[in-house]
Design a protein around this nucleic acid. Structure first.
Lengths: 365, 365
DNA sequence: AAGAAATGCTAAATGGATTTAGCCTTGGCA
DNA sequence: TGCCAAGGCTAAATCCATTTAGCATTTCTT
């Protein structure tokens, strides 16, 4: 952030500079000079002064005065991290926009903003505690540090928290343990003997829960330790690099649970290049936060897709908060499970990863 | 839109209702009642009145008064259509957020909003011509109807138009004809004899240009008419349905240009299920507006990926407009071309689409 | 030449909320 | 009893821009 500069330029300054009244300045800046009968020469002088002084209109002032919907603008925001997968943000945005469209009236308009913070550093986000910014927000993709801050801070506006339980706030989250447990079960049922999980270095509450539940379930059911791959980030490239290294170290993998779909995508690529077939050699389970999951080759089995369901819950909750209606402190979403090809391991057809013909055909080379 | 209702509730009404001054009400609503020594009983009465009357704070009023960055908030927006692919919006959002983060100072804060209109009906978007909304906007994903409206309308704020040339406005667009021509050339060079294009029913200026240039190039170079597939929408499902029908009608396809990546994804699925190999049987070219293009199987050759480059141009232009600096009326972006596996047709290996073994292995069944 | 009309501008009210200075009680203490 | 301090609140200024009513001039009309 740059340092503060001198106070803002107002129409009073322009008026003083040119030697006219603020009324004249306002008329010109609003392009009303014709109907208000301002002399062309004056118009020009005002315009030049505005430009020379670096005038920036104050929207708060304008809105306050302009007797219309503007005065009743409801400002909403989605607060998310730079590091979060964009599809997640996109889903939330779309859902909120659609709701806002319905809620709008002739004298109430809505504005939906997106605020982004750096994962884990939401406390450094300027203006977060200002009461003059938003009527309500949806907060998502927070890391534990962020959650801690939110638990202490008293936000001066209603908020719906996505993916995390925070005392005293309205929260929408995945049914705990569900995703991790079901993913583990699916891999076990597919006959995997070396189930592995891949996750990003940064864990949100939700992804941490998925990871924990997965590992616990694997341990309980198989009496073995699950493999764990940590990727630097959520980008497919990073996932690919992490998985490649894991395999290069000789760790066995015949079932993979990706806590985020983008990780699964990266994994697909590596598995393909290693000549390992999905699901014959490696079964893969993703989490369905990506709308294209079913279009992967083979179609990705997903447990979750909870983001869309969570957003669908969160948006009405936000409007209820805005109206001052009571809301439940917590809404649990049980994500749908889509069994697709990436885990449909045919029992009749044993693993054949070493078949060179099949490999060639598959990799398209 | 619902009809207008009664005038908004202000703190004056609350004050009158409770029988105190607005100062007291303001103090309570801002949670300053302790330091301002308001009696607990009064606090409670004010709170109840605010709730009972359905008070909604007026952010314009708050911002105007609160002597800080709030007064110097710069409101920016990305104006896009509901129907546009979300990744495109996401890229623009990210780029703008990053720029805003740098531009922010201690006494100037930015708010980035997203406004969505229905494709082709931007003129129905309420509040678009209000001067009290935004300091500047980026407009993208417009259809020709929208462009016509924008050409006539005089927007009361600076705007950068993406993907369309509109007189008198600052525009960033793909170098005309480039994408369509290069895509055609790539398919021709891959040896395609029945090159086909697939596009959505709704055509933006950009997608229409791609379509036209592709068809023209095919005609000029091959003396044949290109195949044209019209999909109802941009979703992979819709693309898949359209392509399936096209093939079912017996139209030959051995090269496909998708004017949008999501269309290519849908095509991949159909081709796979038809047992047609990429690129051996069908070469596919997409346009790289999807960050996952290179992770498709096989990796998708893309001409363009121009959105990211366009956004990278547009954001600085917007800030220059805000500062009142001169800007070029038009910036042309020549998109990068990524030749990947989906068009690397091996010359030595002829088409083998009828080979049942290859088909089985490929579809994973 | 006198009134009408057009021209070019200003003064002042207004929108909603915040905040500072300060007023009036009441209670405590010497 | 008299004075001070604390408690509880209000009046009024202020943030910036818009807009209405209206005041001087000047220019036409007839």
């Amino acid at each position: 952030m740059k340092p503060a500069s001198r106070p803002p330029v107002t129409i009073y300054e322009i008026a003083h500079h040119v030697g006219v009244s603020t009324a004249a300045v306002s008329s010109v800046l609003a392009n009303r000079h014709v109907e208000r009968r301002i002399a062309p020469a004056t118009v020009e002088r005002i315009r030049q002064a505005a430009h020379a002084l670096g005038y920036v209109p104050n929207m708060a002032g304008r809105r306050l005065r302009s007797q219309r919907a503007a005065t009743r603008q409801i400002d909403l925001a989605i607060l998310t991290s730079f590091e979060a997968p964009l599809p997640l943000v996109g889903q939330a945005l779309h859902a909120l926009q659609r709701a806002v469209e319905v809620q709008s009236t002739a004298d109430t308009r809505y504005a939906v903003a997106i605020e982004m913070f750096h994962a884990g550093r939401i406390r450094e986000k300027a203006g977060l505690l200002d009461a003059d910014r938003y009527h309500g927000v949806i907060i998502t993709n927070t890391l534990p540090e962020d959650d801690r801050f939110l638990a202490e801070a008293s936000l001066p506006y209603p908020a719906v928290i996505l993916g995390r339980r925070i005392a005293g706030r309205c929260c929408v989250l995945e049914a705990p343990e569900f995703v991790g447990r079901r993913s583990a079960e699916i891999l076990i049922e597919s006959g995997c003997r070396a189930p592995t999980v891949i996750h990003g270095r940064l864990l949100t509450h939700t992804t941490a829960d998925r990871l924990d539940a997965f590992c616990r379930t694997i341990r309980e059911r198989t009496r073995r330790e699950p493999g764990v791959i940590v990727s630097d980030g959520l980008h497919p490239h990073q996932a690919a690099a992490a998985l490649e290294q894991h395999c290069a170290h000789g760790h066995p993998v015949d079932g993979l649970f990706a806590v985020t779909d983008s990780l699964a995508i990266g994994a697909y690529r590596v598995l393909r290049s290693l000549g390992r077939r999905i699901p014959a050699d490696v079964a893969v389970v993703g989490v369905g936060d990506h709308e294209l999951a079913e279009f992967f080759d083979p179609a990705l089995t997903t447990v979750a897709g909870a983001n869309e369901a969570m957003v669908a819950e969160a948006v009405p909750l936000l409007f209820r908060l805005l109206r001052g209606e009571p809301v439940p402190p917590e809404v649990l979403v049980v994500p749908p499970v889509f069994l697709r090809e990436s885990t449909r391991r045919p029992r009749s057809q044993p693993s054949a990863g070493k078949d060179p013909a099949a490999r060639r055909a598959r990799t398209g080379r």
